[in-house]
Nucleic acid binder design. Structure first.
Lengths: 193, 193
DNA sequence: CCTACATGGAACAGTCGTGTTCCACTAGAA
DNA sequence: TTCTAGTGGAACACGACTGTTCCATGTAGG
């Protein structure tokens, strides 16, 4: 039955995109945007809450897969690994926004747990890099991770608004988070091409 | 008539706090949270849209005042000025979130204009710092500003979640944005204690 | 005292989103 | 062709929020 699977996918994708822009969009709008009848939407997701749940589930799966595929546990220079992670996550940032806002899902402890687990590999990566002397020791690990994530976010919306070029985004994220924006600070880092 | 002014202020403050947490909160909930009757709320803000408008207006005014008070146009080292700006804006970040999301205000060109104008002083500051040789020339000015704002945002939510201490926030923002998180990169910057 | 004013409770109609049911249509499989 | 699964349109009841009106209360100031 790939037919139903396709419809389901299209519904999820469309809903994610639409609810990002307007988390209060009605199910009728979602259905219309997906090009299906409201009845069909209700057949796949009986209630609005079911849709949001499936949406969160789907988004979490994608990001988990992306992070995992970037092998954050690899024993390589932190710049290399962070570049892989940023590259993997950046395209998903846009679809992930509604998790931050629309979020009628945070009452499920399982979802919250998975959300926290998402950054744990990066947390460990930062900790290891600190132990190896690659990163400053005076910064809380949580802050380094938060800044990294915030930079990905900023790059994503910067791309959407046309303020920065997509092809520069990864370099900007990793380069500026690692080395900062000050001129005199980074005589090394031949990261730039 | 300070009586009505006080009621209006309380309504605005309560609404801002409440709508941040749940942008779909009903007017009845807002009124109840403010400790006034729904009728009174409607007296001050005839429609929901009017409330949102006044809310956005109020928030914009605060941030504009805060940025302006931080004198971003001052001819001082960029670190000093950015510290002032971050200090001024950070406490308002939380109340400003609903502008990002709830935002049924972005159809008014005037609001969009003021929103953009908000970062312009920082834009100019970065440009001047680049011209003075304080900042890297290979980074788009927009990106530097975006990263700075993103860091403020990250710090704000980090404080809310208890991941970082409020008293460290400003240092973390300015220090890491300017100098990055890499260990070997910043032999100068005695900013850390 | 009493007038003016701000308030808030109650009730109302109108609108919108939701969830459901029923029925007709279409394409592909048997 | 016939059966069937997937679909979508229409209509419905229900509930929630909104915006409005009317009226009763309480309080500060003349």
């Amino acid at each position: 039955m790939t037919s139903t699977d396709l419809t389901r996918r299209r519904l999820l994708d469309t809903a994610a995109t639409l609810l990002c822009k307007d988390n209060g969009a009605s199910l009728a709008e979602v259905a219309a945007a997906a090009g299906v009848g409201r009845t069909t939407l209700h057949r796949y997701f009986p209630s609005r809450h079911d849709l949001l749940l499936a949406l969160a589930e789907d988004a979490l799966e994608r990001v988990e897969a992306a992070v995992s595929a970037a092998r954050p546990e690899a024993d390589e220079p932190v710049a290399v690994v962070l570049t892989r992670v940023a590259t993997a996550v950046l395209p998903l940032a846009d679809e992930l926004r509604f998790l931050d806002v629309g979020a009628a899902v945070w009452d499920l402890p399982e979802m919250v747990e998975r959300w926290y687990d998402l950054s744990r590999p990066v947390d460990d990566l930062v900790s290891r890099a600190k132990a190896k002397g690659e990163l400053r020791l005076d910064l809380p690990t949580a802050w380094v991770v938060d800044l990294f994530v915030a930079a990905i976010w900023a790059a994503s919306s910067g791309i959407s608004d046309g303020r920065i070029a997509r092809r520069d985004a990864i370099k900007l994220i990793v380069d500026t988070v690692l080395n900062g924006v000050t001129l005199s600070a980074s005589p090394k880092s031949g990261g730039a091409r």
